[in-house]
Write a protein that binds this DNA or RNA. Structure first.
Length: 242
DNA sequence: AATCATGACAACCGCCAAAAT
DNA sequence: GATTTTGGCGGTTGTCATGAT
């Protein structure tokens, strides 16, 4: 038996949203919150599929959205996150406040892909184009050795196998493989006192997010450099899945 | 001025996984 | 445990705006 439709398609509008529909949706969610998307359209008096309402709200109507052009810093952040996460747009969006997965996905396909190509970088593998034997490796062996003493080191290995689709699988007692990224990255808990099985949620301790991605230090950054190498040190466990 | 090509982005579709029954 | 329902995600398409010819 196939999956039943999420709504009665025969009686739903499609295509661009009107101002009135937007107003109804916003008014309803402001009054009742984001409840059940299936029942929302009827309750809000909208002839729309619940999924369509959800998408409209998340991608366009949410009050915390940051509209407007992406900054150069955001560009670089997206590129770095994409090199690590691949097309996990929702994860990437989770690290860019006010940006949606759809927006980032579109921006990637229309701008960043071209930007990387113009730099001679393959937007899929993040490696130089026409440089088959390219083998630029940033080694964190020294860092890893230090961290290994504390018993909690995961390392991304040279690509050999299928991509890990779910970052939550990383470091689960098996070799880590990142097929499209040739970086010998050390991923380690910035806060040693935190148990390894702790739920990966927002963190206060350890490297701040800017430092974890090698961005310039922010004014309130209290992180110290690790062997003089802040760049490419990324705490994957702080990447919130949902 | 008209037509065509391209870019940008909103919206849809189908699939998957988790939750509910 | 099996089945159904729902929310969420990534890929793709459709449409409008803009620039080039």
């Amino acid at each position: 038996m196939g999956r039943s439709p999420c709504c009665e398609k025969a009686h739903t509008n499609k295509g661009a949203w009107t101002k009135e529909e937007d107003d109804r949706l916003v008014a309803y969610i402001k009054a009742h919150g984001e409840g059940c998307w299936r029942s929302l359209p009827k309750a809000a008096g909208l002839l729309r599929c619940g999924k369509s309402c959800r998408l409209r709200w998340i991608n366009y109507l949410r009050p915390d959205l940051k509209r407007g052009n992406f900054t150069e810093e955001e560009d670089e952040l997206i590129i770095k996150l994409h090199s690590l996460l691949g097309n996990k747009w929702s994860l990437i969006a989770g690290r860019l406040p006010g940006r949606t997965d759809n927006e980032i996905k579109n921006y990637w396909n229309t701008h960043i892909r071209r930007k990387l190509l113009s730099r001679g970088i393959d937007p899929v593998s993040h490696r130089p184009i026409n440089e088959h034997a390219s083998n630029i490796t940033i080694s964190f062996e020294a860092a890893a050795a230090v961290r290994e003493e504390k018993g909690a080191v995961f390392r991304l290995e040279e690509p050999k196998a299928a991509p890990i689709s779910n970052p939550a699988d990383w470091g689960q007692g098996k070799p880590l493989k990142c097929p499209d990224l040739n970086l010998d990255l050390c991923i380690s808990p910035p806060c040693p006192e935190e148990p390894m099985n702790m739920k990966p949620v927002k963190r206060e301790a350890g490297l701040c997010f800017s430092c974890s991605l090698g961005l310039p230090k922010s004014a309130d950054c209290k992180c110290s450099s690790f062997l003089g190498l802040r760049t490419a040190m990324l705490d994957f466990r702080s990447l919130e899945m949902k």
